[in-house]
Amino acid sequence: MSHDSVDKLVKMANQIGKFFVAQKHPEGVASMTEHLKKFWDPRMRNAIIAHVDHGGAGLDPIAIEAVKRLVHGAGAAASESRPDEHSFDG
């Protein structure tokens, strides 16, 4: 993905993080991971996962944690079941 697109995803992820970090029940990181799984298209999730793999510059701590759980959770599984996704990663 280009810098523009990643910047946008980083901004979106931080916006989401700001909401969940304020919640007390249930735990914010898990809720944010769930939100990304439910509403982000796999190509967006893969792009943000890749960004975190490269250090996650610009992301707030809660967003980094939430994205990391995607890697080890359903996000990765989803990518595995759909190998064609990787060709779109650009």
Partner: peptide
């Protein structure tokens, strides 16, 4: 497909 798709801005 069990995964969500793109929203208009996406």
């Amino acid at each position: 497909d069990p995964e969500p798709g793109l929203r208009i801005p996406n």
